[in-house]
Amino acid sequence: MPAPRTVLLTGAAGGLGTLMRELLPPYGYRLRLFDERPVPDAPDAITAPLADREALRAAVRGVDAIIHLAGISLEASFDQILRANIEGVHQLYEAAREEGVRRVVFASSNHAVGFTPRPADGSAAIGIGTPRRPDTFYGLSKGFGEDLASLYHDLHGIETVSLRIGSCFPEPTSVRMLSIWLSPADCARLLHAALTAEYVGHTVAYASSANTRLWWDLSTARALGYEPQDDSEPYAAALIAAQGELDPDDPAHAHLGGAFCTDPPRWPH
C-alpha cells in the first residue's frame, strides 16, 4: 500500500494524539485533526464528538487512512464507555465505509487481555493468540473494537491494524511500565508501519518498545515492518530504587492489566 498522504487523527487533543501531531508529519503525512475538545494551536482541527455523524463523515471524507485514538482511555461507567468507545468506534467505521477509506489503525489496549497472568521471569512472552480477558469496561470496549474491525474487513474490505498499546509516555513512570512502555518515537514508527504495510486484513499486534523486560511478543508488529529502537531499561534502576520490584502476591502486580485488575481500577495503566 503506498504511503498515505492525508491521515485523519482522531483524539488529536489527547496525550497520545498530542505526541503524534509532532512525530508523524516527518514521515510525510498531512494530518487532519479531530477531537471533541479544541486542539491547541490547530485552528483547522474539527471539533465535534464521534456521535456527530455529519461532522465525522466530513472529517473522514477524502483521507487516505485513519488513526483512531479518540475515546475514553481509562475506566469509566458502562454508559460512558458505551457512548465513547463502543458506539463511537462504530460511528467511525461507518464513516469510513461510507467514504471509501480502506485503512484504519485502531488504538486497542493491553487491557483487552488484562486478566492474563503476568509472565514470570524467563517465561514465554504473551502472544496475540492468548484469550481475551478484559479487566474493565474499558478493556471490554477494546475487544469490541477489535471484533468490529474484523467484521468491517470481512464485510466491507476495510483493513485495520489493531494495536494493543501498553503505555506511551516520554519515559516510564512505574516499575510495571518498564515491561509495557512504548516510547513516543517508537509509537510513530509503529503507526507508520501499520499505515504502509502491504496487506494487513485485520491484524492485531502488541505495541511497545524493545524493552529488556518485555512481557509480550512483538513478532506481529515486526511483520508489519516495525523496528523498535528504544528500551525502558535505562530508567529501571531509579524506578526500582523508588518503588521496589513488582510483588506477584499484590493484586495490582499479578496480572497484565496491573491496577486495572483491582477494585476499583486506578490510573495510570
Score class of each variant (00 low, 15 high):
P2L: 13
A3Q: 15
V7C: 07
A12K: 11
T18A: 12
M20Q: 14
R21W: 04
L24W: 05
P25N: 06
Y27C: 06
Y29K: 07
R32C: 12
F34I: 06
A48W: 14
V63K: 05
D64C: 06
L69S: 03
A70L: 07
A76V: 07
D79V: 01
Q80Y: 01
A84E: 08
I86C: 05
I86P: 13
G88E: 03
A95H: 03
A96Q: 01
R97Y: 06
E98P: 08
G100E: 05
R103P: 01
N110P: 05
F115Q: 06
D121E: 12
R132C: 07
F137T: 01
G139Q: 07
S141R: 05
K142P: 14
G143E: 14
E146H: 15
D147H: 15
A149C: 15
H153W: 14
H153T: 01
D154S: 09
I165W: 08
G166K: 05
F169V: 15
P170R: 00
T173D: 05
M177V: 01
M177Q: 15
L182N: 06
L182T: 04
A185I: 06
D186S: 12
H192M: 10
H192K: 14
A194H: 07
Y199E: 08
V200F: 01
A207I: 01
S208M: 03
T212I: 09
R213M: 10
L214V: 09
D217G: 11
L218Q: 09
L224K: 06
Y226R: 12
L239P: 01
I240S: 02
A241Q: 04
A242N: 08
L246F: 10
P248W: 08
A252H: 04
A252K: 01
C261T: 13
C261F: 11
P264F: 15
R266E: 10
W267Y: 13
